[in-house]
């Protein structure tokens, strides 16, 4: 039996909004510890990992591990119908994921489970030379700034600053943020703006993002809940000079 009840639907809504723009299908694994998923997009550019611990939920029951294979578009369409003060209840029944919103009315959706052939990949351990925390809102703003001139974004870290920049045909944009961390090295990688925008749809997760950067290395972006009961993280392959 699996049942998970949450008083705030926004976490699920925004996480799966990000996840659904990266992967079409996903395998959600549940056990007594909580819910997790690992997924790699079709072109192997973005990897996403979600972890929601049992403690995050108001009620959580999972007496044996389950695999919930689901079409992420269908799931997001349903989750987007939630109102912010609805309670969300997820359960499984005869090949369906049941999602119930309890608010003014009780609304129930059944989403058919699908077959997924590929095993979920485990994330690689990467050894990034730099790690820093930056406000999520600043990252989101930077994307909008860069978007004026380019579809690529260069992310750089040095001893003092985190920098985002772009050089476009019609102009340049530069964002500098004094990170205040103890960082001894420098790193720079270039990424697709569109791919970063997809990841940053996960709004409500955390106000702080942890970023790891290297030279021409994947971007490691981690959003961790203040309560430590949930984590959403991404790896994004860089663009490199041809």
């Amino acid at each position: 039996m699996f049942k998970a009840e949450l008083s705030d639907p926004n976490i699920l809504k925004t996480s799966f909004d990000a996840i659904s723009s990266i992967v079409d299908e996903v395998q959600i694994q549940t056990d007594s510890e909580g819910i997790r998923l690992d997924a790699l997009d079709r072109s192997h550019i973005t990897f996403v990992h979600l972890e929601l611990n049992a403690g995050l939920f108001d009620e959580y029951v999972c007496d044996e591990p389950e695999k919930i294979n689901i079409d992420t578009d269908e799931l997001v369409k349903v989750l987007k119908r939630s109102k912010s003060d609805d309670r969300v209840i997820m359960s499984l029944s005869e090949g369906n994921l049941i999602i119930t919103f309890e608010g003014e009315a009780k609304r129930t959706f059944k989403i058919r489970l699908i077959d997924i052939e590929n095993e979920s990949p485990s994330p690689p351990e990467l050894d990034h030379p730099t790690k820093l925390e930056i406000p999520f809102a600043l990252l989101k703003d930077s994307i909008a700034d860069i978007d004026i001139f380019s579809d690529k974004i260069a992310l750089m870290v040095d001893k003092e600053y985190f920098k985002a920049s772009a050089e476009g045909e019609f102009g340049d944009a530069n964002i500098e943020y004094l990170h205040g961390e103890k960082i001894d090295s420098e790193a720079k990688s270039v990424f697709s703006l569109e791919k970063i925008r997809e990841m940053l749809k996960a709004d409500k997760f955390s106000d702080i993002a942890t970023i790891k950067l290297g030279d021409d290395m994947p971007l490691d972006l981690k959003l961790k809940m203040v309560s430590d009961e949930g984590e959403l993280s991404f790896l994004l392959a860089p663009r490199i000079e041809a």
């Binding site: 790699l40 072109s43 192997h44 550019i45 973005t46 990897f47 990949p121 485990s122 994330p123 690689p124 351990e125 990467l126 690529k152 270039v190 697709s192 021409d216 994947p218 790896l235 392959a237 860089p238 663009r239 490199i240 000079e241 041809a242």
Partner: peptide, 14 residues
């Protein structure tokens, strides 16, 4: 000019 890489190499290394 730049080209998009994939995560494949990094997955293999781990």
């Amino acid at each position: 000019q730049s080209r998009q890489t994939t995560l494949d190499n990094f997955f293999k290394k781990s």
